[in-house]
């Protein structure tokens, strides 16, 4: 799972569905913690399509 910082609108929808609880919404960005299991639920719900398959480089 890879979040495009350019596309992300910091709405927190991905945080709401993450079964591993590894996503966190600060006021200006989504913080990704260790432990993603590639379930891709965040990809499905992102209103802006800002989440893609792959490794986060941040």
């Amino acid at each position: 799972m890879k979040i495009s910082a350019e596309q992300c609108g910091c709405c927190g929808v991905c945080v709401a569905v993450c079964p591993q609880n590894i996503l966190e919404l600060s006021s200006m960005m989504i913080i990704t913690h260790e432990g993603c299991e590639n379930c891709n639920l965040c990809m499905v719900v992102c209103p802006l399509g800002a989440i893609k398959d792959g490794k986060n480089e941040i």
């Binding site: 929808v13 569905v17 639920l41 209103p47």
Partner: peptide, 10 residues
Amino acid sequence: RQTPHSLCSC
């Protein structure tokens, strides 16, 4: 926790 089915993406 929500799921893609329980949450409308807007």
